[in-house]
Amino acid sequence: MDFSNFIHFNELIPGLPTDLGLECLTRLPHSAHRVALRVCSHWHHLLQSDQFYVHRKKIGRTRRVTCLVQARDEQPRRDKLTGSLPPCYGISLFDPESMAWDRVDPVPDYPFGLPLFCQLASCDGSLVLMGGWDPASYEPLTAVFIYDFRTSEWRRGKDMPEKRSFFAIGSGLGRVYVAGGHDENKNALKSAWAYDPRSDEWTWMGPMGRERDECEGVVVGDEFWVVSGYGTERQGLFDGSAEVLDIGSGQWREVSGVWEEGRCPRSCVGVVKDGKLVNFRGLDPGLRVGVCGISVGSRVVLSGSEYEGAPHGFYLVDMEEGQNRKLRSISVTEGFSGLVQSGCCVEI
């Protein structure tokens, strides 16, 4: 890979050949990048470049972490009308390798709490946040924000073409896919769109065969699966089918019998090795309420509780075929024990 535009005639690290200097910078943990960016202009441009990210990914120096829309333990603001403390959410970052917790910087437009029920997806090392309700007015939003881990900065993306809540979301092949949910009048939707963070453009993906409110999205290979959901006239009657978008051809098909009818799929759909869908809720007796599962390779970061009001637990489980799927408890740093609403895996 050509890095000549960044290196010019200077050594990346004085006294070392260029290839060794590049190898040293490639091994820097992401937590050190904010400091490394300030060392010199060559390091700054290199570490923020697409070429460097692709190079690190190719040689296995990237790391998969989970980004979680999580309730904050502290509530920084009170509702002016009621005086009560409304729910306040931020983005927590958990690294399953180091077992370390951290926070992603707040979205500048929402410094005191994310839009309620917003959705996350990842794309080429960036985090994409979209939709949700305004935390003050509870109005549905179409706003899109992209967090670049290379620069540790948020930028505003092009708004969603339609207002929708509780929609399916997934990412693959450089784009983020959304489908279903409901509009501001509670009408279930069957429309679908794809967003490209690089071009900042939305593309119409055609309608699904049926309306699917409160559905869940998951990407399996080169397919975007929209799991379960219900129509406008069937409130809460979750369907057992899924609709599958072939990302390459743009064609939809329906698959029956892949989900238990009547079961909400939100934040608890997983995929095992043979491509079969699995419900994380009930995988263990301690995971029955407020369950959220984020796949990180063959492992899953799980959160939930046994019953309403029970302590919220965090676990790591290996979903590989042949494993006993025993849950391993995760030690939670102070301030990160709140309810997880949704999340995604990001390769940084």
Rank of each mutant, 00 (worst) to 15 (best):
R63P: 01
C215F: 01
V144A: 09
M1E: 13
E23R: 13
H30F: 14
D200W: 02
S126D: 11
D222A: 11
I348V: 15
R64S: 11
P265G: 11
L339S: 12
E97K: 15
T62P: 03
D200M: 01
L120G: 04
A121Q: 14
R61E: 14
L46C: 09
T66K: 03
V218F: 06
D222P: 04
V278H: 06
V255I: 13
D109V: 05
P197M: 04
E306R: 10
V272I: 13
C40R: 13
P115G: 06
P285M: 12
K57H: 09
V244Q: 08
A310F: 06
E162F: 13
W259K: 11
K158S: 14
E308F: 07
A188L: 05
M160C: 13
N324A: 12
G304L: 05
V220Y: 02
R328I: 03
A121S: 15
E223G: 02
R156M: 08
W259Y: 05
L141C: 14
G125Q: 12
E97S: 12
A143H: 08
G240M: 00
V255G: 02
L114C: 01
I59P: 03
C123A: 13
C268Y: 00
M1D: 10
V65A: 06
M130K: 02
I348M: 10
V272M: 09
T232V: 07
G113K: 10
L189N: 02
I294T: 05
L277G: 03
L47F: 03
A192Q: 04
P111N: 06
R263V: 15
G206R: 13
Y307C: 07
I330M: 10
S267F: 09
E74T: 12
P17W: 13
Q323R: 15
W202A: 07
Y195D: 01
Q251H: 11
D196P: 05
P86Y: 09
I91K: 01
V107P: 02
R288P: 02
G229E: 02
P87F: 06
V220N: 02
E347N: 12
I294S: 03
G174N: 07
E308H: 09
K163V: 10
D159I: 03
S199Q: 12
C345I: 09
G270S: 07
F238W: 12
S329L: 13
P111W: 07
A179R: 02
S295Y: 00
F238L: 05
V291A: 12
P135L: 14
C264V: 11
D95I: 08
G309F: 09
D105N: 06
G335R: 07
V296I: 14
E347W: 07
Q323K: 15
F94R: 05
P311V: 06
E201L: 13
Y307T: 04
A188S: 15
V269Y: 01
D95Q: 13
D102H: 01
Q119S: 15
Y177K: 02
P14S: 11
H30T: 10
P140K: 00
E11R: 15
G286Q: 15
A32W: 03
E321F: 05
V219D: 10
Y53L: 14
L37P: 00
S295W: 00
S191K: 06
T232I: 11
